[in-house]
Design a protein around this nucleic acid. Structure first.
Lengths: 300, 300
DNA sequence: TTAATGCTTGTGATAAATGCTATTAATACC
DNA sequence: GGTATTAATAGCATTTATCACAAGCATTAA
């Protein structure tokens, strides 16, 4: 009996089928079928009630799952604790974040990371869709926005502020935009996400919040691409500070309302570092968290 | 990584060497060497510090052992709980007792047992030497004598009384043995165990205990063989009631002092059923305990 | 220095696991 | 009720792992 088979069994219960489990583990479905059959033979019990269209664990299968699932996790944990004893931290850490943030802020750090931890591998998964941390075996995620819920540890990396920016070139063509309400008449570039494409909120000092309805010809789901169109002078866009630092300094982008706080969702957005809430974190994960915290603190 | 390899690792830590572990698991030492080497490669750490004359787990090995040992036990437990769900109890139960008791009292029950539980196998280990329950993986032991100590559950099956017996034929040749003290001058058959071969203790009602020094030409370690010599008329012997019931009834053996309680060790001896003190006992073990309790209660 | 012990490695035969492909079976949809 | 679809499984060929025996090698006790 192999631990890989037990993992596969657990995965099969969670996936609800041999084919799905096979896909997750990147092996042939027939192999799953055979391994589970072997396990059933060992235990002398059928673990799944299966036909082509129905698939469910038997009572015995469910019971076995309840016992085995935590055990193989602990087995992994034991192996990780042993790895932690090694002279050099080693292994692979899977990090998930959005495409834009990954490209703009994480990728530039990886050279330093590799130099510091030569035996540590990073598997960087950039995805703008919601990700299932558990199934995808994500060790660390960085998410931007309001404080996320869920059962994991949240560490606030730095606050994220948004700015309405336009290219210098655009502003030359355009008469001066004196007040946020003027945006309603401009061709703004928008995100397709909830809030972003309907109205932007402005706040200055103790003044009353201003809500401006936004329209425009372009809706772009990727922040890098969105910034690109703003740079081309298509129109103003709402961009996060971490992705426009350089452009503001060199003057290719201009913050239209530097006195205002602006947001399309919530004024209290930040970059959050998330990881599983466990009593034991492998050293490789702890070190990576530490590294990201340290490097990204520079954005504050 | 196979669970068998992990078991082997645990066994190796306990045995203190590859060769010893190999002997316990009945496999080739080279196989142990290779499997542990593979495990070390997986973990990226050396688990044992080994030279030809020194063998000890490394720090990592010991740590891994602490984690893994309970886990593989729980894995076994999980499998057993699944087996318990089967329609018929199945598996193998390992029972240990002394040679004489096994032959006289347990073996005769096994026909009934097999009929009642057709899928249950008994592995009956008869041994007069002390046995390491844990290492020998004994599920149930029956021990005769004073209440045994140790970390397991004790169930008292029935009291054991000893009787000084001689064959009918011997008594014909011999003048009547009126009083226990007369034994000191007879050729008694003795056990080699502590107490048995030096003196026997007699007690009647509230009278003062009589201690009689015993001598004789024969010392025999096996109770069945000892009974055989008594039956041949060699001389009197101290025999437990459970092994002479039939002979007393048919008159081939005679209890010389039916009024006395006799012992070579302790008046409070009994037959004890012992099993591991765990929160979970496999069904097969529970049923066998139940069976033995039920069947052996008839001796009371 | 020698003998003995016990881990390790080599080797050829045997057994097992895997992926691909084909088959079979069950069910949903027309 | 027939048919298309989907998922499990069986066959087969290939690769991979395992095993037992033998030989090697290092270490230590006498």
């Amino acid at each position: 009996m192999k631990t890989a088979t037990l993992k596969l069994f657990v995965e099969t219960v969670r996936s609800g089928g041999f084919t799905a489990a096979a896909a997750r583990q990147q092996i042939d479905p027939s192999s799953v079928s055979r391994q589970i059959a072997a396990l059933e033979k060992d235990l002398g019990v059928r673990l799944f009630e299966r036909s082509t269209r129905r698939f469910q664990p038997t009572e015995a299968g469910l019971l076995y799952y309840e016992f085995v699932a935590p055990l193989i996790e602990e087995l992994d944990e034991a192996a990780n604790r042993i790895l932690d004893l090694r002279a050099n931290p080693s292994g692979t850490v899977r990090v998930s974040t959005s495409v834009a943030f990954g490209v703009a802020c994480i990728a530039p750090l990886l050279g330093t990371f590799c130099a510091r931890y030569p035996d540590l591998n990073i598997d960087l998964r950039l995805d703008d869709q919601p990700v299932d941390f558990v199934h995808e075996k994500i060790d660390i995620a960085i998410r931007l926005g309001p404080a996320p819920g869920g059962d994991f540890v949240r560490a606030r990396l730095f606050p994220v502020r948004h700015h309405v920016c336009a290219s210098a070139e655009f502003l030359e063509r355009q008469q001066r935009v004196e007040h946020p309400t003027a945006l309603a008449k401009l061709n703004c570039v928008r995100f397709p996400f909830k809030g972003f494409n309907t109205q932007w909120h402005f706040r200055r000092g103790r003044e009353k919040e201003i809500i401006v309805p936004i329209t425009g010809k372009l809706i772009i789901s990727n922040a890098i691409a969105l910034k690109s169109t703003v740079l081309q002078g298509v129109g103003p866009g709402l961009l996060a500070d971490w992705m426009i630092k350089k452009e503001l300094e060199e003057g290719s982008l201009v913050d239209l309302f530097p006195d205002y706080q602006v947001t399309a969702t919530d004024f209290e957005t930040a970059a959050w570092l998330l990881y599983a809430s466990r009593n034991y974190l492998p050293l490789k994960v702890r070190l990576t968290i530490e590294f990201l915290n340290e490097q990204l603190a520079k954005f504050t």
